[in-house]
Amino acid sequence: MTSVLSPAHRRARWLILLALCASSAIAGFALTVGAYPVTTEAIFRSLARLVSGQEPGDMQERVLMTIRAPRVLAGLLIGAALAASGAAYQTLFRNPLVSPDVLGVSAGAGLGAVFGIFLSLPIFFIQLFAFAGGLATVAVVALIATSIRGRDPVLVLVLGGVVVGALAGAAISLIKILADPYDQLPAITFWLLGSLSSIRQNDALAILPAVALGLVPLILLRWRIDVLSTGDEEARALGLPAGALRALVIACATLMTASVVALAGVIGWVGLVIPHIARMLVGPAFSRLLPMSLALGGGYLVLVDTLARSLARIETPIGILTAIVGAPFFIWLLWRGRNDAA
């Protein structure tokens, strides 16, 4: 009665700390890996320059400061954001098997970007189209869900997401057929597979406000999100305006997913698998699930991206690698849970 934290809770704190350290170590390691030879010494030199606000000196420092470090930082941010929105969606939809794109945000963002590529727009507008497409798709799904009353609102949302996502997928296929097979088709294919290869120096900074805007309410509402996971009726009986709260959480998670998808393309599996692992480690309470997902997601994506850029001279699209790692893990989860009553 006297202790504020239960033993499990205290253990979770240590695990989260450990995960943060592991992710930092991965990020540090990622800085040393890459096609361009960079010495450890140059890493410290760059760090010193960064602290003192100097421009990079030699080529090694320039590679670190303008290419590699921005990419590692973006990887941390993208992985963390995908895992956080996955955790939010899973808790919200009371289903540990949903991913951040369950409401069609990736399909919508994909459609937006593909349309931008089709119109031969500059990259900034392609990203803007992707962002807008992701948000618009989820808005359409939400609109459908609110206009259909008298059914389980969560079920209607998920089914709406499936339907609208499929429509967006069809539209993408249509554009692919119409696209110029020499200029546009390869660009579309690469974009849909997701990649951090074209991350530029300030890209991570550019999406940081949007990600923070989505993340802060999730942190603040951590306890209420737990209550929301008991279902619509119970949450309302416990005194929460469940509908409004759910809309807010969806908006936050969508904002985060749409911004990272706009930057790096569609990267699957992270938002599905990472929250799952985090839950196995620290339990379902969102106050622990969220930080654990953030820590694991960031580290995992940097790790996979490091593989993607170092396996061969040619980039392996990261979406392929996350699927290769994620799919077997998912099957393992199913296998492990087969006799589990829970």
Partner: peptide
Amino acid sequence: VAVSNDGRRGIANISPEQLLL
């Protein structure tokens, strides 16, 4: 300059670092 070391041919995406190299 775009020589693959794993026998791949065709269209590919490359990393900025590789390009610098």
